[in-house]
Design a protein around this nucleic acid. Structure first.
Lengths: 186, 186
DNA sequence: GAAACCATGTAAGTTGTTACATGATTGG
DNA sequence: CCAATCATGTAACAACTTACATGGTTTC
């Protein structure tokens, strides 16, 4: 799924501006999809050109103009069709896990810092997801769809599992890291 | 972390060919890093040019020649330095979760199929990870480092959490999908 | 007064994938 | 005999990120 399809999908849940789409991707969707302004704005322009979106410019008080996009019937059909494609496998790239894999080359203090940061990250995500789980307004829609609830709860489950795992197993890798330091000093 | 650094890292655990590196990335590392031949081979060539790797060609019986790469001292230093960079945040892109988010647009049968496939995927990954967890030979090394064990166990924890979550919550989203079908037919 | 937020966009550059090219061997 | 595995590589292409450009407003 590319940025164009994701934008189309988000707009199928309700109208939004490019800026708001980006904010949603920093919310609960960010756990499994991300995109920069540099890909969102051109995507919206292209989709509008193709008649899959309708744009209306809204002047705002003490704010720059906002371009609000709304999915068209043609857009809904295109989205439904795109969703029929067999989903490609997940693409994950985690610097954190990579650096843990090579933890031998990391100073114990560095390692501890990374683990702490990671725990903080998961806790922050859980907190944020909790807000989204209970408050539909955070999504910019009056009501949460079943899909929204599912992916939010899924995110909670995964972040909690990661948090628990790291808390319970960090001592193993940290002990190994300190041991290796000792050997290196020999 | 780019493909070059990951190759350097894998080779810091033991020597290997490009083909073998690719196989490792389809193993437990695949959960958090993937790369195609099209990026691995040029990366190895470049690293060798820079003196970070040493290559030795090995003729094989009834097999094409193999180019075995070994990390140099200079390579180890470069890797250690690269690992000091603050790890960038995880990049995840999951078509599965995206299509669940827009599950309203999916026929109940389609949805059920995707969920089944996903469960099968997690089960397959768990099985594969179990093998890696107990058998160092699967990694191509005589001994598992603490890092290897950690990332493998981490993978087990995450896949198990995902599996459990989907098993326990699929009925919610599937019920909503069928309900919506009913409404659409009205 | 500085940083962060709101808001949109473009262009250059990076990075990596897919497809192609080659070819022997092994297992179902 | 067909598919998969072993083994390496290149080139065209796709997709995306980063940095730049602009400028008012709000919060600390």
């Amino acid at each position: 799924m590319d940025v164009r399809t994701m934008c189309l999908g988000i707009l199928s849940l309700g109208e939004a501006s490019g800026y708001e789409i980006k904010k949603m991707l920093e919310g609960p969707l960010g756990s499994f999809f991300d995109a920069s302004f540099g890909s969102i704005y051109p995507a919206l322009a292209q989709l509008t050109d193709q008649g899959l979106l309708a744009m209306s410019e809204q002047a705002q008080d003490k704010r720059p103009d906002k371009k609000v996009y709304k999915i068209t019937q043609k857009g809904r059909l295109a989205l439904a069709e795109a969703l029929l494609d067999k989903p490609s496998r997940d693409r994950v790239r985690s610097d954190f896990l990579a650096s843990i894999l090579f933890a031998d080359l990391l100073a114990p203090r560095e390692l501890a810092e990374r683990l702490d940061e990671r725990l903080a990250f998961h806790r922050a995500m859980l907190e944020r997801l909790e807000k989204y789980r209970t408050d539909a307004a955070e999504w910019g829609t009056p009501e949460l769809t079943a899909g929204m609830r599912f992916v939010t709860d899924y995110g909670v489950a995964i972040h909690r599992a990661a948090l628990d795992f790291i808390e319970q197993n960090r001592h193993v890798i940290e002990a190994a890291s300190m041991l290796r330091r000792g050997q290196a000093a020999d």
